[in-house]
């Protein structure tokens, strides 16, 4: 290798090592920052539900609950809508519809989340309070999930906002995965006298299922970490209640909301530990999703 090549190799090598160092550094910094809290509460931090900064009692359970529930609502809604949209775009829509529509859907991902938050606060929350909530309660009010007073802000509203924000991701990646299914396979199904619908549901979707699952998990990863839009519509109350109409809190939103008012060092380190939990969960979920999508793309290449 010539000296120039060697220098170049060193630069690109260094650049890529930097990323690995960044992740490790972030992790180390989070652990150091949350050390007082880790020492004070130990693993019980995860399952204690009291969050009382005045009394110096900190437990992450309400935020973990809020994060998991809003993300689950989001992924259920977004998966259904996103997969249907992806099937439509990849297999049914004529090109003059599919191209602009995919572009539009991908644009949705570029809308700043604070704008979603504003919209959620001024449009969606009142809508949930006056229309969606009462309607759900009318039909499903007998279950604890949809009982109790409807504030407008709460788990359901947070979940719907998140669904809107991740549906572009789910749709775009599912569409790509579905489009990668060989044309042969669709034609084989059509040539046997199947309808388009049978071909999509029995041949194309099953063949694409791993990649679509990956798309959903990637969407889930986004939903877990999304901060500002959720903070604006979740109600910000560290409580666990069965009702989806009740206000709640998520890991990300409590950090965003309370960091400026955290006065004691234990308070700050408890918030950082929440960040550590979120970091670990996000990394694992995203890694899983990437692995699944890679596996599908790899086998088709």
């Amino acid at each position: 290798m010539s000296p120039i090549d060697r220098g170049f190799a060193a630069v690109v090598y260094g650049g890529s090592v930097l990323f690995a160092l960044l992740i490790v550094g972030l992790f180390v910094e989070l652990v150091l920052g949350s050390w007082p809290s880790l020492k004070a509460f130990g693993p019980s931090f995860i399952w204690h539900s009291a969050w009382d900064p005045v009394a110096n009692k900190f437990g992450a359970l309400p935020m973990i609950y809020g994060t998991v529930v809003t993300s689950l609502i989001a992924i259920v809604l977004a998966a259904f809508v996103g997969i249907m949209a992806a099937v439509f775009l990849a297999d049914f829509a004529p090109r003059w519809i599919a191209t602009p529509l995919s572009f539009l859907i991908e644009l949705l991902a570029a809308v700043p989340s604070v704008v979603y938050g504003l919209w959620g606060l001024f449009v969606l929350a009142p809508l949930v309070r006056t229309a969606i909530g009462p309607a759900l309660q009318h039909v499903l009010g007998w279950t604890p999930l949809f009982s109790g007073p409807i504030y407008g802000v709460g788990l359901l509203t947070g979940g719907i906002i998140l669904a809107l924000m991740i549906v572009p991701t789910v749709t775009a990646i599912s569409r790509e995965v579905i489009a990668a299914i060989p044309r042969d396979l669709r034609e084989a199904s059509m040539a046997l006298g199947s309808t388009h619908w049978e071909t999509a549901t029995r041949v194309v979707l099953p063949a694409a299922r791993i990649g679509i699952f990956g798309a959903c998990v990637l969407g889930l990863g986004r939903a877990l970490g999304e901060t500002i839009a959720v903070t604006m519509v979740i109600g910000n109350r560290p409580e666990i209640s069965a009702s989806l109409f009740a206000p709640s809190y998520t890991l990300a939103s409590v950090i965003a909301n309370e960091f400026t008012e955290a006065t004691t060092s234990l308070y700050i380190s408890a918030l950082i530990e929440l960040g550590l939990i979120l970091f670990l969960v996000s990394i694992v979920v995203n890694a899983l999703a990437r692995l699944m999508i890679w596996r599908v793309r790899g086998s088709r290449a």
């Binding site: 060989p182 042969d184 396979l185 034609e187 084989a188 199904s189 041949v203 099953p206 063949a207 299922r209």
Partner: peptide, 8 residues
């Protein structure tokens, strides 16, 4: 090309 349904 042989195109059996891979998931069946």
């Amino acid at each position: 090309r042989p195109n059996p349904f891979p998931t069946l």
